[in-house]
């Protein structure tokens, strides 16, 4: 769906995006992670033809960027760096104007399309208020509605849940999951690990312009082979397991070399109580922190600054 090779963008002397090779497959829910300033938005803009790459190539929906984009963009819904609307116009009018811009939309069905999009994002009742009176969350929903207007095959969303309350986040996530189930590929860029972890099937991690990680979430979070067990009988358990305990923290033990079922069998046979047991999996946060440095908004002094 999205394939890039050595995609690079340089702004003056600043290398914003440094030779990234993205691979987004049809049907993916792709999470594009990275701290603020790591180049996520620049990449999204390059994919949509707003910014032109310094070097490298990209294909979106099998169309070369930027020249083939005009064939691909009609099937793409996008939310780029926050929503935007004409402040003096109502949400409905904003959507109507966006729908009327560009070729290929029928005037007869416009009203129905706009209503459907407003309905989808839960703004059906607020379509008449001017956009400047909208809350941050409502604006976000309006932006999503605009992206959904054409029943896109690919949704490119930059921070889609920004400004939404927890219920809103849940609502939008359910909407996106439903659309994905119906065949829409999702490309969600975010700096919120939890959001990506809950939504995505595949992640790419960007750090200071470089793609430092790209894999299926399932692979990244595969069990480590260690088992975590909570037991009130800590001392007995440590003695019984004899050197297989790698970490001990209150009633929590991390055990190596035994499957969960074997461990439970072993402990229960000896009359030890087990509160909770599970195979250890790395969290996405751990995976990401392992491969990235400090965020770009943190500036450490460097050697030559003396």
């Amino acid at each position: 769906m999205i394939v890039t090779q050595g995609l690079t963008k340089r702004f003056g002397s600043v290398l914003a995006v440094d030779g990234i090779d993205l691979q987004v497959h049809p049907g993916d829910r792709y999470g594009f992670l990275g701290p603020n300033g790591s180049g996520k938005t620049t990449t999204v803009r390059m994919l949509l033809g707003l910014i032109f790459a310094t070097s490298g190539s990209a294909e979106v929906m099998d169309q070369p960027v930027p020249h083939g984009l005009k064939h691909a963009l009609p099937q793409i819904g996008a939310l780029i760096e926050g929503p935007a609307a004409y402040p003096h116009l109502s949400g409905r009018t904003n959507l109507t104007l966006i729908d009327a811009s560009g070729a290929g939309t029928s005037r007869r069905t416009r009203r129905a399309r706009v209503d459907a999009a407003l309905e989808q994002v839960g703004l059906a009742g607020a379509g008449r208020k001017p956009a400047k009176a909208y809350s941050l969350g409502m604006r976000q929903r309006l932006g999503l509605a605009a992206a959904l207007l054409r029943q896109p095959q690919l949704l490119v969303l930059d921070e889609p849940t920004n400004g939404l309350d927890p219920q809103g986040i849940r609502e939008i996530r359910d909407l996106l999951l439903a659309m994905n189930a119906a065949g829409t590929t999702l490309f969600v860029s975010s700096h919120l690990l939890a959001e990506v972890e809950q939504l995505c099937t595949r992640v790419g991690v960007l750090d200071r312009g470089r793609l430092v990680l790209q894999d299926d979430l399932a692979t990244l979070r595969a069990p480590t082979g260690r088992v975590i067990v909570h037991t009130p009988d800590v001392a007995a358990a440590v003695g019984l397991l004899d050197g297989r305990v790698q970490e001990r923290d209150g009633t929590r033990l991390v055990v190596r070399g035994l499957s969960a079922e074997d461990l439970v069998t072993l402990l229960v046979r000896d009359g030890l109580r087990v509160q909770e047991v599970m195979a250890e999996r790395p969290t996405l946060e751990e995976v990401v922190l392992a491969v990235t440095g400090a965020g770009s908004d943190r500036i450490d002094s460097s050697g030559d600054e003396r």
Binding site: R45, L48, G49, L50, L69, K70, L73, P74, I76, A78, I80, E81, G82, P83, A84, A85, Y86, P87, I98, S101, G102, A146
Partner: peptide
């Protein structure tokens, strides 16, 4: 107001 980017990705040439 930011609408230019949505206009161009609509796409409008």
């Amino acid at each position: 107001v930011g609408t230019l980017r949505y206009l161009l990705t609509r796409p409008v040439g």
